[in-house]
Amino acid sequence: MDISEITIEGDTPGIAWRLPVFHFKGDDSRAPTVYIQAALHAGELPGTALVHFLCERLRRAEAEGAIAGSLTIVPHANPIGLAQSHFGELQGRFDLGSRANFNRDFPLIPLEKRDTLLADLGRFSATDRLKRKLLHMALGAELVLDLHCDDESLQYAYIDTVFWPEAADLASALSMDAVLLSDGESSAFEEAVGYAWKHEGGGERRTSLPGRLSTTLELRGTREVYPEMAAADAEGLFRFLVARGIVRAVSEPLPAFARPAAPLDNIEMIRAPEAGTVLFHRDIGDRVEAGERLATIVTRPGFPEGAIEVWAPQAGLIVTRVSSRFARRRGDLMKIACDLPSSASRKPGTLED
């Protein structure tokens, strides 16, 4: 394993961030190349824990001469966000200087313009320079995994329909509880990678990209950071690498993925109709039927008629739930993966900001 370091100079004097990057060199030019990064939203640490155990596993494979495809791994992709705290609370989702989401506004370019990402970097902010360097590294690979987590959540993945169902092996290897099939219409990191591949060489937008994959893996909730869990996730990802021919090892065939795979149009975003204290009646992993009570919102504590109920609009699997027990009006409460499209209109792109 080789270790290099990327330096991101700050936008004020005396500030710079250093970003370690791990490299495992493969010995087979025919094997796929891989890019893995964790914690682009700096406080989402299950992926960082997974990478810690995965690198240990890969070092053993390297010592055995078993690395076929080259891997680039960034254990913590956002040192800028990691340095942001407000009254003791880590603020790793948005850049406090620009208010931009660290996982939005990645450049949308065709693959042949990859090197333009690093041209004239001095005219960009530190956050945009970080985004450009991460995207540049990722576009040198064929399989790109962006490790995130949700708030309170099952283990699930966002996978563009252009990679499905070929990517079912990844969902199976990591025992995903669900897959959300995205439309590739945002500027998030994994969709910027997909955009570059779909528009490579000009001409019509590609609708199939065999042998390639760019995905966001949501590794449960923010508090799900335990050694046994991280080690098991790392072993699952290692199985995927073996199945795709990146690492040579004896492994059992991956079972077929049999969990829900729902288009984003089939995701019910449950929101609070009014502000108040949230009393949940159902938990992540529960299957609910249409009309079941999901939560009670105490809008005026102590007053008669001081609470309102939130009901399931259709049957489905509760994939995520917020950890906060106070909701602002229209604040997100849950995501429910359903068999049928939601009646609520949805703009193309991500489900949340």
Rank of each mutant, 00 (worst) to 15 (best):
Q91C: 04
G201V: 12
I8S: 02
I270K: 09
K113F: 09
A38C: 12
R259C: 09
G291W: 00
A66Y: 13
E152M: 12
P110A: 00
T215W: 00
L145E: 07
A196C: 11
T320D: 02
R30D: 14
G245F: 12
I67Y: 04
S342H: 11
S4Y: 03
A167D: 09
W17C: 04
A49W: 03
R300G: 00
L96D: 00
V225E: 01
P165Y: 13
R282S: 01
P110Y: 03
A168E: 15
F106W: 12
A290F: 02
A63W: 10
F102D: 09
A126E: 05
E352C: 10
H23C: 09
D286K: 08
L217T: 01
G194C: 14
R104H: 09
E152R: 10
T161E: 15
E5M: 14
A188Y: 07
F22W: 14
E218K: 02
I73G: 05
L254S: 01
G69S: 04
F124L: 11
N103V: 05
D95T: 14
A272T: 07
L135R: 06
K131F: 04
A196K: 08
L333N: 08
F124Q: 02
G10R: 05
R321M: 06
S70Y: 04
V179T: 15
I159E: 13
E305D: 15
D150A: 15
Q155F: 10
D120G: 03
E5D: 02
D151F: 08
G184E: 08
L333P: 00
I246S: 00
R248E: 08
D115C: 09
E112A: 05
V179E: 10
C149A: 11
P253F: 07
S323M: 12
T296I: 14
G236A: 06
G202W: 15
R114Y: 06
W197N: 01
G65E: 13
L45D: 06
P107L: 03
S342N: 05
P263M: 06
G276F: 03
A249F: 09
E5W: 13
F280W: 15
F106G: 02
V298Q: 07
R114I: 04
R244L: 03
I246A: 08
A66F: 07
T116L: 12
M334T: 03
V298N: 09
C55Y: 03
R129M: 07
T277M: 15
D160H: 10
E152P: 01
R287E: 07
E191R: 06
R206M: 14
V322H: 02
H52D: 12
L45V: 03
M334F: 15
L96Q: 02
P273H: 07
F102S: 01
A126N: 00
S186C: 06
